[in-house]
Every structure is written in C-alpha cells, then in structure tokens.
Design a binder for these strands. Structure first.
Lengths: 186, 186
DNA sequence: AAGTTTGTACAGTTTTTTCTGTACGTTCTA
DNA sequence: TAGAACGTACAGAAAAAACTGTACAAACTT
C-alpha cells in the first residue's frame, strides 16, 4: 500500500493515519459479521486499496502468512464482501473489496440469516408435527394436552416470527427495502 | 425441567425430544447474535421452561457450573433476550426468556449494531475532516488532491450507508418496521 | 514434457476463549 | 447480631480458535 508517488512523506503519513483509524474501526466491528479482527482488518485494507491485491501483497501488508490470507479472503468471498477480479494475463488471483455496503449488508442477511432461519424453521416444523400428532392421538389426556399445547403455542409463535424475518430478508435481497427506507435522507 | 407430572414416561420422552431438536437448532444459530453455543442452548432451555428458573436450576439442567450460568445469563440480559422476574418472597433471582422474538431482533440491532454504527461513523468523520483539511491546505498539489479525493469518496459513501443503516435501525426500534413489513402475512 | 508458480490442505503451535472452583461481599433469616 | 444463602470476581485449567510452515496438486510457461 504505497500508492502515494509524488506525495511528501508528511502528507503520506496523514493519509495513512486517516485510513488506519477507519480500518481499525471497521475491523473491530466486523465481529458482527462473524469474522475475526484480523479478517476485518484485511477487509478494511482492501477497502482502501486503489488496485486489486494478490494474496502475497496482502500478506506483506498485514505481516501475516499467505495461508491466513487465503483463508481470510475465502471468508470474505463467502460473505461477498470481496470478489475476485480478472486482469489481462495475470499470474496471481486478484481480489477487491465490495464497495457497495448496502449490498454487503443485504448479502449478509441473504446468506447467513436466511440459512439460520431455514434451519430453525425446519426444526420447529418437525417438532410441531410430532407434538400435534401426540395431541391428536392422546387429546383426551388432560395433563398431556395442557403441556403439549403450551409448547405448540411457543413453537407457532416462533414460526410466525421467522415468517416475518424471512419476508424482511426478502425485501433486503430484492432491494425493495430502499422503497421502504430510502437510501437518501427524506 | 420436569414439568410433566401425570404424563407417562413415553410421552415425556416425545415432548423432550421435540424440545431438544428446537433448542439445538436455536443454540446453533445464536452465533449470529454473538453468543456461544452453550449460551444459545441456555436460552433455548429457558424458552421452553414454563416457569422462570434460578441459576442453580439452570446449572443442574445444563450440567454446568453456576458461574457459567451467571455469566451466560448476564450476556442474555445484555441482549435483552432474558429478563429477571420478581416473585413473592423469592430467595434466588429468577430469569425468564423473552418470548417476543420480534422484540429480541429489534433490540439486538438497537444495542449491538447501533453501537458499531456510532463507532464507525465517529472514525469516518474524524478521518474525513483530516483529509478535507489536507485538501484545503494543499489543493494545488495535483497528486495529493487525486489521492485524497479517492479516499474521501470512499469515506463519504460509507457515511451515506451508515446514515441509511441508522434509519433502518430506527424503524426497527420504533416498531415502524411493522408498517413496512407487516407481522401478518399479506 | 520438464520446470515454475500459485493456491490451499493439513498438522502442529500459539493465542484466545470458555469453563470451573474457590473466595468473598452482600443480603436475607432468625 | 450471628449465621446462612446467594451471586459474582478472579485465577487457573480445559477447550477452541487462529495462525504458521510445509507439502502438494493444478495450472501455466517454455
């Protein structure tokens, strides 16, 4: 990261310091996306890099092993926070940070939260089915019916929440969210 | 967790199995809220418990130390996923899972994401200020102006995103989100 | 086809996090 | 006011994770 040809040492320092503050902040808060401090830092670095970077360049800049860069980049790729870039006759793979953070946010939900919703809904439906069957077959048993009904209520309430969450994620994924909450300040 | 008085062993098994599946799924996916598998599991357990639980009861049920229950509960309290319950002349503290998951979801953003937004915005503004000053004072320097402008653009784009995210969180916190994405299926 | 170069799998090490047991301050009981 | 019970701070042990170096397969160069 020395893109500052023709710029004095002092001004370079100022720019680097400004960048570093932001990178640090980003890195620290990317725990919300389930990534390490160092992976967050890697993203921040790529965010400011004006040209796509290779694994070797990242490793040098971060003072970390190439292996770590490889796994770090893969995580960021999975989250769609980074994408591979093609360049004429390039030997090495090149990576670039996704700069549209609205998109990144939406992707995160479409990828991670959607998966969780599906897994939970699956479990909830399965259990709800079993409980409903129990209720059908032994509905006469007062104590049983009462206990099962309580659980079923909780499960149904959870399912209703996930239904809503799923629709919320839909609006993020489709971009319809920007009709509801506009990008530009009202 | 043996609320099943007057229910046969076999039916108790069925209910427990249904619960366990859900608790497991919940626990597994609560990593999205930044908590451990075991804390997620604790939450799931509380979710199905029909009466509020004490730390000792949780420890017994989870087969974990009371200390772990204490710290686990505090995390869940911080996330507002669990709240303390008052009971007539109770020696021990009692805790209960927040059952409104819409609220839990909203609180999570209001608590964790809002904090992150604020920290990042702070850093971005600070750095933007420094860069703008640099630009004002040495705008004549072609190379400098070009480099600084690129960084400023990125920062401003990020700030614009955070402004949007902040407003999105507002709609979650105020409940206005349910006008935009209704709880009930359309 | 031989020789490089590149990215990643894997095993081992280091670091971090999670969990436990003890100790102690606080609050309730008698 | 003495005694017991409760919750948590803290330090150490156990478990999990992050990170590194080596080794190797795939792709490219010549």
């Amino acid at each position: 990261m020395h893109p500052f040809e023709g710029i004095s040492e002092q001004h370079t320092q100022t720019i680097m310091k400004a960048r570093k503050r932001v990178i640090e902040a980003i890195g620290k808060n990317m725990g919300l996306y389930g990534v390490t401090l160092s992976v967050g830092h890697l993203y921040g670095m790529l965010f400011f890099s004006e040209k796509p970077m290779t694994l070797d360049e990242m490793g040098k800049e971060m003072e970390m092993s190439k292996t770590s860069m490889s796994t770090g980049v893969r995580m960021l790729l999975d989250l769609k926070m980074v994408h591979r870039v093609w360049e004429k006759g390039a030997r090495k793979d090149l990576y670039e940070a996704e700069s549209d953070w609205h998109q990144t946010f939406a992707d995160y939900f479409a990828i991670e939260w959607r998966t969780a919703v599906e897994a939970n809904v699956h479990a909830l439906n399965r259990s709800a089915g079993e409980l409903r069957r129990l209720l059908e077959e032994h509905g006469g048993d007062e104590a049983l019916a009462s206990a099962v009904s309580k659980d079923l209520e909780k499960i149904e309430s959870a399912l209703s929440y996930y239904d809503w969450l799923d629709r919320l994620i839909d609006t993020l994924e489709s971009g319809k969210i920007y009709d509801l909450v506009p990008k530009e300040k009202p």
